[in-house]
Simulated assay, not measured.
Amino acid sequence: MMKKYMAAGIVAISVLGATTGCGFTGGKDIGKDAALEAALQDAGVTKEEATRLKTSKDRDDGRMIYEIQFDANGTEYDYEIAAEDGTILTADTENVASNTAAQNKDTQGNESAQEAQNGQQNNTQNNQSQSAGANVAVSQEQAMQTALERVPGATESDVRMELDNDDGQYKYEGDIIYDQREYEFEIDANTGIILEWSEERR
């Protein structure tokens, strides 16, 4: 009888030890703010310079990580930070050079050149130049304003969008990342109607 109790005690201690050991590695968490700070420091970017900022917590290969995403100075940054100690696990960058800003610059240049050569051009031609030569009635700027109206507080720097031709139908596809939320949309390039809208819930 005594042996039975001793065996049960040993099993209980083993289970407790294993549980404690497992809990120990995942028990520490530096927190979202510290993870963001680690990413910003590595990128050499201040929080004020970062736009389209998004932070989320996830589990990868059994360890908790923070996924940090933001844009700054024409570059998109994607980080994975270990929640336990703030180690940077991955750091990816992509030159986005704000497609919208680049297209707006091109448009302004085109308008100036056209005005110098031919006087004033009608709005349809300007809209076509804004949409990279596509024959659409709604300019990228107009579509952007339509999307921004759905997200109070967001600005043009929070938006990324492009004109796409899907089976003969032109539409603007893009997303807005603002206040830690991501909104994805599709807008008809001829009517300005929002075809699809989705919001990532926290």
Score class of each variant (00 low, 15 high):
Met64Ile: 11
Ala143Gly: 13
Gly133Asn: 11
Leu36Phe: 04
Ala34Thr: 12
Phe70His: 09
Thr107Pro: 00
Glu184Ser: 15
Asn127Cys: 09
Lys3Ile: 12
Ser198Val: 05
Val151Tyr: 02
Arg181His: 09
Ile177Val: 15
Met144Leu: 10
Asn110Tyr: 14
Glu156Ile: 03
Val15His: 01
Ile177Tyr: 01
Ala137Val: 11
Gly119Trp: 13
Ala132Lys: 12
Glu49Cys: 00
Ala12Trp: 01
Gln69Lys: 15
Thr20Glu: 00
Lys32Asn: 06
Gly31Asp: 00
Ala38Trp: 00
Asn190Glu: 13
Ala116His: 10
Gly27Lys: 02
Gly86Asp: 05
Glu149Met: 07
Val15Ala: 11
Gly109Val: 14
Leu89Met: 15
Ile88Lys: 09
Ala34Asp: 07
Gln142Met: 10
Glu149His: 06
Glu94Gly: 09
Arg202Pro: 02
Ile177Arg: 01
Thr87Phe: 04
Tyr178Cys: 03
Gln130Ile: 07
Glu48Ser: 07
Glu37Thr: 09
Ala189Ser: 06
Arg202Gln: 08
Gly21Ile: 12
Glu162Lys: 07
Glu173Pro: 02
Met6Asn: 01
Thr155Asp: 05
Gly192Cys: 07
Gly23Arg: 03
Ile13Val: 14
Ala39Ile: 02
Glu199Ser: 09
Glu141Cys: 00
Ala35Glu: 03
Phe70Glu: 07
Ile187Gln: 01
Asp33Val: 08
Thr90Gly: 04
Ser129Asn: 12
Val45Asn: 01
Ile68Tyr: 08
Leu16Thr: 10
Gln125Gly: 14
Gly168Trp: 11
Asp167Thr: 08
Lys3Gly: 11
Asn126His: 13
Ala34Met: 09
Gly17Cys: 14
Glu141Asp: 13
Gln130Asn: 14
Asp175Trp: 07
Ser98Lys: 05
Ala82Ser: 15
Ala72Thr: 06
